[in-house]
Nucleic acid binder design. Structure first.
Length: 564
RNA sequence: UGGCCUGUCGCCAAGUGGUAAGGCACGGGACUUUGACUCCCGCAUUCGUAGGUUCAAAUCCUGCCAGGCCAGCCA
């Protein structure tokens, strides 16, 4: 009988400052008890673990309060957006289980309405067409410590503004010559309130609306309206938008929206050793420093998926790290912990030899093959067992033999005994080496027939147990091991990413041997290789003729840790 | 040097005036045909800092220090 909490319970118990805000709204009946959140990605890149963190905040809150969750593509800048990204984003969200039901929206669907709202602000004398150049606007804006000054176009008549704005829309002006601005306060200590631009002219074809528009609303103007149009109650975003909140509220207030949505901010999440900036990710992909957006070294959701992470492990990770107002840098060890936790007791544990050395049993009958029955996962008997062929010629892991054993080493060494997992106790009698190079060619051992697993003699204890594979039965496989992609953090503008890439971030081992049992394994299948880690069959490079495994995470290795 | 925000163990993070939860990491031990897993045990007399209010402060007040964000016709 287990009383452990499942995720639902954990979510129920988990509380943060956002829950308190919503609890209060519920209590006061601000939105008639309604909760609706949204995730508004711009389709200009792939989702990564930081995006999943943001999605999870909005998604789990909608779930907790029996509310709704929308997916909305915030596509108000045609120069940067593309359909490829909306497809990848929806695919990754579905994989994670973030369900927007029938509420998939596009900010571009609201262009007509947003235009009308702009017109009504002009009519209220709260917006004007400005003809200052880009540089002039910057100059007039002032600095962080000094106020700006009013644009000479600030006090045009409503009629003139209406006329000019209409002409902007119909394409009579060149890009950059005119913008629509909100009339707020050029001396506000908040730069966002110094007559922010609401609309700019862009003769760029939009991936959805084509050439219908040549003016596009800015984020600050479009976002509160998108939220309002969709009935969003709580518009949750990360801290860098904190300074935009007064503007968000200003637009909704001037437009006299009742029960306006609330923008609330949370701290961003970073992970040690992972690149979670969209900008850097794009540079790495476009510059072909990595194998696409789904490179297993990247913290993109597609990269994590290809690497072998489960959506459950990512979700548990996100729920365990929590949310606060402060930004965080979470240790990647927590993510790895979540994966091990999820897979343990769930996937078969098999044997693989990554760096093989030949081992010969000199007293084992020539040509004999025994089928050793081994449990697939001792913690989960329901996963059954398999028969593994055992012969007198095996491969073992290079690091499981030491000619001169270090103190505390209890695997194979000359004269020493060790158990072959699921088979016999063996003793190392001789080491055959290449006379010139000193390279170990094979290890010769004798086995004790009385100690076969299951026999009475198997009760004898030896200090070490190692994994093995029969050389004539083993399958050849390629294994990819990963380390940090960037050993040092990049700063500012990076000219050449190759200077930052860790050459060991991807280690390809082409000559690995695995149990014949794995012959039928399919891309995406996961296994634990005993003592080596959790692995996933790569979905991109595995073919009928070639098996490629990605190591998701290594297993803990206290011996290696203590001897490093 | 303007405004806003944030500072609780190495890393996340509860706590919201009544005497510091939990997880990861780490250290020690038991168990083990995975040096894994599991199981025990340990791990903040102290909450950025200095004062103040109070019978009582991580929680309230004041000053200081540190970090973050903002001067795109990006989102």
């Amino acid at each position: 009988m287990s009383f452990e909490l499942d995720n639902t319970d954990r979510n129920e118990m988990f509380s943060n400052f956002l829950h308190k805000i919503i609890d209060k709204d519920m209590e006061e009946g601000v939105y008639d008890g309604r909760v609706q959140t949204r995730f508004p990605p711009e389709p200009n890149g792939y989702l990564h673990i930081g995006s999943a963190y943001a999605i999870n905040i909005s998604y789990s809150i909608a779930q907790k309060y029996g509310g709704k969750f929308n997916l909305r593509f915030d596509d108000t800048n045609p120069a940067k957006e593309d359909m490829e990204y909306v497809e990848s984003i929806t695919r990754d969200m579905k994989w994670m289980g973030f369900d927007w039901e029938d509420r998939l929206f596009y900010g571009s669907d609201y262009f007509d309405r947003i235009y009308e709202y702009a017109v009504s602000l002009i009519k209220k004398e709260k917006a004007y067409v400005c003809e200052l150049t880009l540089d002039e606007i910057r100059e007039y804006r002032g600095t962080l410590t000094s106020p700006g000054k009013d644009s000479p176009y600030r006090n045009r008549s409503i009629e003139k503004n209406l006329e000019l704005f209409e002409k902007m829309r119909s394409g009579e002006f060149e890009a950059g010559t005119k913008v629509l601005r909100a009339k707020i306060d050029m001396s506000s200590p908040n730069m966002n309130m110094r007559d922010p631009v609401m609309y700019r002219i862009q003769f760029v074809s939009h991936y959805r609306t084509g050439d219908k528009w040549c003016i596009y609303p800015m984020y600050d103007f479009a976002h509160p309206l998108q939220d309002y149009i969709e009935g969003i109650t709580h518009s949750l975003c990360s801290n860098e938008f904190k300074n935009h909140r007064p503007l968000y509220e200003w637009f909704l207030n001037e437009l006299e929206i009742k029960s306006p949505p609330k923008q609330r901010e949370f701290g961003r999440m970073n992970i040690t050793g992972a690149v979670t900036s969209k900008r850097y990710l794009r540079q790495l992909v476009k510059g072909e420093f990595v194998d696409g957006w789904d490179d297993p070294r990247l913290p993109t959701l597609s990269g994590l998926r290809r690497r072998g992470f489960t959506p459950e492990s990512i979700l548990n990770f996100l729920n365990e790290i929590g949310v606060s107002k402060d930004s965080s840098t979470v240790d990647i060890a927590m993510l790895e912990h979540s994966l091990r936790e999820d897979l343990k007791g769930k996937v078969p544990c098999l044997m693989a030899v990554l760096r093989p050395i030949k081992l010969v049993l000199t007293n084992y009958p020539k040509g004999q093959v025994e089928m050793m029955e081994i449990q697939n996962n001792p913690e989960s008997p329901e996963l059954g067992s398999r028969k593994v062929p055992f012969t007198g010629e095996l491969y073992i892991e290079e690091e499981d033999f030491m000619e001169i054993p270090a103190k505390g080493y209890h695997r194979l060494s000359p004269g020493n005994e060790v158990r072959l997992k699921g088979a016999y106790i063996i003793k190392c009698e001789e080491v055959v080496k290449n006379e010139k190079t000193g390279e170990i060619l094979e290890i010769r051992c004798t086995y004790d027939p009385e100690t076969r697993s299951g026999l009475i003699g198997s009760a004898r204890k030896v200090k070490g147990t190692i994994h093995w594979v029969s050389s004539m039965h083993a399958l050849n496989a390629e294994v990819h091991l990963y380390e940090r992609l960037l050993p040092k953090d990049a700063e500012g503008e990076v000219e050449d990413w190759s200077e930052y890439i860790n050459p060991n971030s991807l280690v390809v081992l082409k000559n690995c041997f695995i149990e014949p049992e794995l012959k039928a394994s399919k891309p995406g299948e996961r296994f634990q290789f005993i003592r080596l880690g959790h692995f996933c069959v790569d979905e991109k490079y595995t073919t009928d003729k070639k098996l490629v495994f990605n190591r998701i995470v290594p297993l803990k290795d206290t011996w290696k840790k203590n001897n490093k």
